[in-house]
Design a binder for these strands. Structure first.
Lengths: 262, 262
DNA sequence: AACAAATGTGAGCACTGCTCTTGACTTACG
DNA sequence: CGTAAGTCAAGAGCAGTGCTCACATTTGTT
């Protein structure tokens, strides 16, 4: 039954990818070769993704580049969806790494600076990798549904980082919209916010939490507009300045103090 | 030479579609039949688009539904791109119509209310037509480049409506962020804003114009998050309340007075 | 009626994802 | 050491895609 063995192999590979660092290094030369091939497929897939976009990602093309017949890659990757999922996780993690690094490079107490660093990291990665950004935050790929159990982890790293900044600022007494007008929080929304606060052990009150959510979606709105070419060709030429302005206003909206410096 | 005639026909159809209302109604029964067929193709295309997404839009499937052999539709539509363009314009106009209607239903002087109506109209349409919204504001369809000369017109209706609201409010002395902190406008950005102000005959000063741009991208950021399923399944259940909250904060960010009522 | 324009047909090319059989090879165990 | 299990690449094949082309048919006009 070549089916079963093949499936088993694919599953093993999946678990390896999932456990990643934690898993033991492949022992037998066979497993080593297999791991190398899977890594090659991922690398080529990343290239194709970056060049032609997610919807145009073709297993056959990857196979050609790998110098192998198309059906052979099915030994390593269950199907096109599986490859997309692997690339999705890969991209989420790369973005997460860059955001974490950027945030970590700013002093812990400079919450405004950390927020700006997060925003700029997201934008920088998005503009450098528009196709992969599109896979994460653009229109859903038709016929593809990301498996939540594998993608929510890496997929929530940015919002986690943002929440950490806001919560840290609040606990340090540096997050406030005191004296400013704010809309009332409706009952249902209040419930959602309470659940979020409990789940992640946050101290931030409703109003500021809702504003944080706005800053979050607004950040990605601004980045998406730029990455997806919604600004047209000529409307805005000083896009970095525009983004920095937006970022500063958003920090203020969220209740953060201005960044220490740039 | 069936080529030439076919191309000529397609071109004629294009011009008809372009001139739309201005063009005279098709006179000969042949032209009537042709117009009907093109309209049918568009209707079926709209359905397929809504059901399966832009990247999965198939001319062959449309031909099947039309009860005709696949190559026949090329008599009416140059190629898949052309159909996508037609659907793009169609969607832009439907969204524009709904936004205009929603905004027009609010008293002219209630600028906050008009802004809220615009936002809710965009969200409503996006949630009702996620695939078509994705075509307009999601990741670019791979290998497809919208022809600017045909799409910028309908594609800018929403931002035009928004600018009209903000400019009207400013001229009425109801747009201000007086007394609030605002980031400085960098030189390049100032140039862009000046160009925009001149081109559209706006009175809104730099700071407020930049804030308007932020409100614009933020609005679509919030809508996209919801339409593209970025919130996950459970994080936010009271999404309309969340959106209304965001909209209220955004209006405040833009310098608008609170809406008169709902 | 004759002609030409417009329209529909079906075959065909090159591509896609994916399945399945076949043959070869590597590894591990008795 | 030899055999059996496990692994893997190849290639044919199916169903689908966009698109072109030669041909046939319908339609409107002269």
């Amino acid at each position: 039954m070549p089916e079963d063995s093949a499936n088993a192999a694919v599953k093993a590979a999946k678990e390896n990818a999932g456990a990643a660092a934690a898993a033991s290094r492949p022992r037998t030369p066979r497993e080593r070769a297999r791991a190398r091939t899977v890594a090659d497929i991922l690398r080529l897939g990343r290239e194709h993704l970056a060049l032609h976009g997610a919807a145009a990602l073709s297993l056959r093309a990857v196979a050609r580049d790998l110098g192998v017949v198309s059906s052979a890659v099915y030994r390593y990757v269950e199907n096109r969806e599986e490859l997309l999922t692997l690339l999705l996780i890969d991209a989420y993690n790369e973005l997460g790494d860059e955001v974490d690094a950027a945030v970590g490079a700013v002093p812990e107490g400079d919450f405004g600076g950390r927020f700006a660093a997060l925003g700029r990291a997201v934008r920088g990665w998005a503009l450098r990798e528009p196709s992969r950004y599109a896979l994460l935050f653009g229109s859903p790929v038709p016929g593809y549904r990301a498996p939540a159990e594998r993608t929510t982890g890496p997929g929530t790293r940015v919002i986690f980082a943002l929440m950490a900044i806001l919560d840290g600022a609040f606990r340090a007494g540096q997050l406030s919209v005191e004296g400013r007008w704010s809309p009332a929080i409706a009952a249902g929304l209040g419930g959602d916010l309470a659940k979020i606060r409990a789940e992640f052990g946050l101290a931030v009150p409703d109003d500021l939490l809702a504003r944080g959510a706005l800053a979050w979606t607004s950040l990605f709105g601004a980045v998406s507009f730029e990455a997806f070419g919604q600004y047209g060709e000529e409307t805005f030429t000083a896009r970095e300045e525009l983004f920095d302005h937006h970022l500063a206003v958003l920090a203020d909206v969220a209740g953060l103090p201005a960044a220490a410096a740039r």
